[in-house]
């Protein structure tokens, strides 16, 4: 009986190694097929600017890092010279990062409070229902009239996007805390509501909170580009700026800058998440 189970798990192990290899090869195949379709599309489409080819885009990408641009650091007011691609990425991060972090902080705080406190939940639930469906980009009009469409305005829009995703992560996580765990904690001397939140609800909700945050990293990239299409400085603005000059390959290059930036953040955060949730 035991032997049979062992053999089976061994097969699964070797199988998964071969499976990994096969998966990588298939993934590579998919990428190559896409490049081929893209290339054929680019070669056969007229006029040529409609679909910039892969090679042309790669050149444009390299070009972004071969030239440099001066940008102004907000608040400090000093100027900074960086390779063009990085410079505009930095501009985006100047509003993306504060918007994301502040939105996550506020969203998580309110989500925890609302999931934990029944009275607060009663008060706010209808309000949340009404405000939640408004797409973050719809707030762009207020971003413009309140802050002007620059770093602050864009940060505000990112804030709204990050807020809701993190709010729901924390809210759902706290609502899902098992009563067995809170019972166990109260028999072990946890008396105050705040201690219960800190010692039981928060660690128990951590997986959902972190998943919410990771989702908001991606969603906020979409939002930030949207905000920049209205004129805030950054990679999104450069995409539309390049296309206004019919330099479509440069637009594609900036699209890849966004993709790479997101990938780095996602991989980095997944790593942190795995470390923090080793107990799962």
């Amino acid at each position: 009986m035991t032997t049979r189970t062992n053999t089976r798990s061994d097969t699964v192990f070797t199988g998964s190694f071969e499976g990994d290899l096969r998966r990588y090869l298939r993934g590579l195949g998919g990428l190559l097929a896409f490049l081929l379709v893209w290339w054929v599309g680019a070669v056969t489409t007229q006029p040529t600017y409609l679909v910039p080819g892969p090679l042309e885009s790669a050149y444009a990408f390299v070009d972004l890092f071969a030239t440099s641009t001066a940008i102004v650091v907000p608040i400090l007011g000093s100027s900074l010279v960086l390779p063009t691609g990085l410079a505009h990425l930095a501009q985006t991060l100047f509003h993306y990062v504060p918007g994301l972090l502040l939105g996550a902080l506020c969203g998580i705080s309110l989500g925890l409070a609302m999931g934990w406190n029944g009275a607060l939940e009663d008060w706010l639930r209808p309000l949340v229902r009404v405000l939640r469906p408004i797409p973050p980009l719809a707030w762009v009009v207020f971003a413009i009239v309140w802050f002007g469409i620059h770093h602050t305005g864009a940060a505000f829009i990112v804030f709204v996007g990050a807020f809701w995703i993190n709010f729901y992560g924390a809210y759902g996580g706290v609502e899902g805390v098992s009563s067995d765990l809170t019972d166990a904690a109260s028999t072990l001397g946890v008396e105050r509501d705040f201690s219960m939140l800190k010692l039981v609800a928060l660690p128990s909700a951590a997986p959902q909170v972190l998943t919410g945050f990771r989702t908001s990293i991606g969603r906020c990239w979409m939002i930030v580009v949207g905000a920049e299409l209205f004129g805030a400085p950054g990679v999104g603005y450069e995409i539309i700026n390049a296309s206004n000059n019919l330099a479509m390959a440069t637009s594609v290059a900036y699209m890849f800058v966004i993709s790479l930036a997101f990938l780095c953040m996602d991989v980095g955060f997944r790593f942190v998440e795995r470390r923090m949730l080793a107990w799962r």
Binding site: S178, D180, L181, D183, A184, A185, T187, L188, G189, V190, E191, S195, L199, V200, P203, S204, A206, W279, R280
Partner: peptide
């Protein structure tokens, strides 16, 4: 009054030592 639960009710984010320690730190 210490209680032992049917479905264990261990804190999954704490190690064995961390679980045992929990009641010692209150308050």
């Amino acid at each position: 009054r210490g209680m032992v639960f049917q479905e264990y009710a261990l804190f999954p984010w704490r190690t064995v030592r961390g679980n045992v320690r929990f009641g010692l730190d209150r308050p």
